[in-house]
Design a protein around this nucleic acid. Structure first.
Lengths: 230, 230
DNA sequence: GCAAAAGTGTTCCAATTACACCCATGC
DNA sequence: GCATGGGTGTAATTGGAACACTTTTGC
């Protein structure tokens, strides 16, 4: 499950299935583990097949194993889902056994106008909740930003993933005050409009203590339709 | 991986392996998934084989999948580890293919005086960290307590799992002030010494908001030897 | 009375929140 | 000048940490 943020929206890479079952349906990209390969290595290999990205520039973590005997009509398939977070990418090339791959807003993929194959809707919801939770306790949000990036860009990542706006000044204090989160480059970026912003790179810290918690009071964005439930 | 708290110590159920490889070594109990069975169902079945407990009285959750091709010398075995938390139990009966099962303090199992089979030391460390983290954000600690229980008993669960003492008064305010954590029974328990304590049952709440965070300042207990690292 | 554990009250401090306000730039 | 987003200052509030203190029991 590969997440990115494009046009201030959280998006997920989906493929149009070229084989039965669920021919023509959208599905999360995936594949089979090979002999002599760990699950981490298999996930990384599949990731490279779908995107041009190598594993160093993005975040990859194991999510959950899905094991309902009926989840695949072809037979008994147990899937160990992985979650990858990466910066905005060019439109991807088609994978090995996929007719086409494309970025889709997570909101529309969950809303269910076009149902996902297998139990991938469940996996997607779990991945979304994991990503939202990770933003509270870790610094992975920076994995969504192509370096170098500004504090405002990082804040818009949080707003896209969480689905509500944050107070810009408090957010700035929090992330700049967290040791090892951001490393100033000394450079500045001159936007089309407004004051230029300082540029940063990802720092060595991976944990956010104290955490940056989602407030109970939410300010939904216009394009957000789904709720924050479990 | 079945955890319990006995004698104010976090303990884990280990079996002495009766077969090669690692014959005679201690190992986490486990088994193979059957056709037509989910991983959750398999974990519950294995749990019932090792203990007399049914799944309703304890907490069971998926932990992580372990997939190193070399982790089992017999061949390619991928293990999906589960974490179970339950109240103090009588000494367990031996499982199906285990010579003997016994409760062992997690501290001694990790210290490595007796090394665990396969990569079970890694799995145990991951499970310990998950349990410690769950106590911060959820109400699962109550799963360790036979009902009904007192606030002091619940606090000693936290102290055993986290490995340091908590302030009794602040702890009491926190747990009694969390809606749905504890349900007063109206009864009291008269200990051998000291003032009698009110008795509670587990409430419907499963999340602890705001969380009950482990302090950065720790007060190690005497029998604790291992650190809090990742 | 004394020890021990339960339970209450209070003060101090760290962190978040809400919001006012200033800054630097392009047009 | 003015709109726009970057960035600083500050008061109010929340919640945790520390610890003094009272209560209720068995001996």
């Amino acid at each position: 499950m590969i997440f990115t943020v494009r046009q201030d929206q959280l998006q997920v890479l989906l493929i149009d299935r070229g084989n039965e079952p669920y021919l023509g349906c959208a599905a999360l990209p995936g594949g089979f583990v090979r002999d002599g390969e760990t699950l981490d290595e298999a996930a990384l290999r599949e990731l490279r097949e779908e995107t041009a990205l190598d594993g160093r520039t993005l975040h990859l973590e194991q999510l959950h194993a899905y094991s309902d005997p009926e989840r695949d009509p072809r037979g008994r398939i147990i899937t160990v889902a992985y979650l990858a977070l990466g910066p905005n990418l060019p439109p991807p090339v088609a994978g090995t056994d996929a007719a086409a791959a494309h970025w889709t807003p997570v909101s529309s993929a969950i809303d269910g106008d076009m149902p996902l194959a297998f139990d991938h809707a469940t996996i997607l919801k779990d991945g979304l909740e994991r990503a939202r939770s990770q933003l509270e306790h870790t610094t992975v949000a920076a994995a969504f930003c192509p370096e170098p990036f500004t504090v405002g860009e990082l804040r818009r990542i949080y707003e896209a993933v969480w689905g509500f706006k944050l107070d810009a000044s408090n957010f700035r204090r929090k992330v700049t005050g967290t040791e090892g989160f951001l490393i100033p480059t000394g450079e500045r970026r001159f936007p089309e409009v407004g004051r230029p912003a300082a540029l940063y790179c990802r720092g060595p810290a991976s944990l956010l203590v104290p955490p940056l918690l989602r407030s109970s009071e939410v300010f939904p964005l216009s394009h957000e339709r789904f709720s924050i439930g479990t």
